[in-house]
Write a protein that binds this DNA or RNA. Structure first.
Length: 424
RNA sequence: GGAGAAAUGGCAGAGUGGUCGAAUGCGGUGGUCUUGAAAACCAUUGUACGGCAACGUACCGGGGGUUCGAAUCCCUCUUUCUCCGCCA
């Protein structure tokens, strides 16, 4: 959520920058500013009524104590009217505040100045491309066929037990999952991220804090009976650790990593993009989360991008790094870099990581603030996160790129984690 | 799931209708003393909104109510603890 202060002080800039996200915010911002004026006026009126009431109440107490009952009763009458007035103003205020809030949550985050304009993914900018493209043998196939051939991932079985998008990993397929999770967690820890094992279901306040609610409500599995949501990413519980927290500047940087299963309804996505491991309802992911001083958040974003890049390099996968354009940027992000790996068996680039700086957008919802050492004033922190990494598409790329006529070789770095060096 | 008890500032803990944004202790910060440190002593130490400021207003788990006035009384929800039941 953008802060009112920012909108007030940078109205034109906000409108101009939101155009990069292909949004004309002119009307909504005008609306917000008008509502806020109303809010101020109403609150001032209410404060004044309450102030008078408070002083009358004090008087009444004094009068009763000194035995001036008649005067006291007169004063009581007076405050009866004020009470009514204050109550009405209070209701009006609640109304305005909720309207204002509803408007504010409709505004997405302001994109960073380096975000290129563009409508959708075709206009993302490739920052760099690296890694060696594999040379496949003539019998090479996409991962869904490999999974079947070596009996390591069973999609049909998942359909039987749960439904489409919930694969069953078997034997070396299951071990490969475990190996990747450990590999990623260890590497992240070495890079200074402390490990968290969070709850996989969260309450409404947490969903709101990181921005999934209200705008992505339909994308989360909802446990109605308890009003809880299955997490779409560990970002949600981990970032919400810091909801309603005031840090001091020396706490920075806060860096966490967490492995979790992720659950996404993916309502409305069909077609061949969803084949095999390309898009699932449940998948495993290791996430990195950082909370930073506003002056340093872009430095930290860079270091997170480099770290994720090193993971992909260690797995020996060809990849490209994209700077997302305005049209492809998520609602809450100010700047996002995506990593895609090349999956040779299906001749496709697959997104495996998204590393973003949310600046103070999430922090404002979370009320995640900090104090500069020695200062009294609080200000909003910056939050960042990235996948490091999401497993299914990494597995898809490993299976496809490392396939040989004799079986699927395991990348060197992973052998010690797997306990085997080939799937055959 | 059943029965009972509780929820107050960073922590501990007092406060049962007005003088309470809240005693006291610990912790934090600044200072005095000291070569330095400790101890002692002094001062200071919640958040938000409005206001140039003085200051005003709100917040004692959340919401609602009674009252001229609520941390304090009532209702309700949530959470925690104890006991019982069930259980990985």
């Amino acid at each position: 959520m953008l802060t009112l202060k920012y909108i007030q002080e940078n109205k034109e800039e906000a409108i101009a920058k939101l155009k990069i996200k292909n949004l004309d915010a002119t009307d909504i911002i005008a609306d917000i500013l008008a509502k806020d004026e109303g809010r101020k006026r109403t609150q001032k009126e209410q404060d004044e009524s309450l102030a008078v009431m408070n002083s009358i109440s004090k008087e009444v107490g004094q009068l009763f104590k000194t035995g001036k009952v008649e005067e006291a009763n007169k004063a009581k009458e007076k405050s009866g009217q004020l009470k009514e007035q204050a109550k009405n103003l209070g209701q009006k205020l609640t109304q305005i505040e909720s309207e204002l809030h509803n408007l504010l949550v409709q505004l997405p985050n302001i994109p960073h100045e380096t975000v290129p304009p563009g409508k959708g993914e075709d206009e993302n900018v490739t920052v760099r491309e690296a890694g060696k493209m594999p040379e496949l043998h003539s019998e090479a196939m996409p991962h869904w066929d490999l999974a079947k051939k070596y009996d390591i991932i069973d999609f049909e079985l998942g359909v039987k037990i749960t439904g489409a998008g919930f694969p069953v990993y078997k034997g070396k397929g299951a071990k490969l999952q475990r190996a990747l999770i450990n590999f990623f967690l260890n590497e992240n820890e070495k890079a200074g991220f402390t490990e968290i094992m969070p709850p996989l279901v969260v309450n409404e306040a947490s969903g709101f804090g990181t921005g999934q609610l209200p705008d992505k409500e339909g994308q989360m599995y909802h446990v109605g009976i308890d009003n809880l949501y299955l997490i779409p990413t560990a970002e949600v519980p981990v970032t919400n650790i810091y909801r309603d927290v005031i840090l001091t500047s020396k706490d920075f940087p806060v860096k966490h990593t967490a492995y979790s299963s992720c659950f996404r309804r993916e309502a409305g996505s069909y077609g061949k993009d969803v084949r095999g491991l390309n898009r699932l309802h449940q998948f495993e992911k290791v996430e990195v989360v950082a909370i930073e001083h506003p002056a340093k958040s872009y430095e930290t974003l860079d270091s997170m991008v480099k770290h994720v890049e090193s993971l992909i390099q260690k797995l020996g996968l060809p990849y490209r790094l994209l700077r997302l354009c305005g049209g492809d940027l998520s609602f809450t992000s100010a700047l996002t870099f995506d990593f895609e790996v090349y999956a040779a068996g299906q001749d496709k680039w697959l997104e495996v990581s998204s590393v973003s700086n949310f600046e103070s957008y999430q922090a404002n919802r979370l009320k995640l603030r900090f104090k500069e050492e020695g200062q009294k004033k609080t200000q909003l922190a910056h939050t960042l996160n990235g996948s490091a990494l999401a497993l299914p598409r990494i597995v898809a790329a490993i299976l496809e790129n490392y396939q040989t006529p004799k079986g699927i070789k395991i990348p060197d770095e992973l052998i010690k984690y797997c306990g085997f060096d080939i799937i055959n």
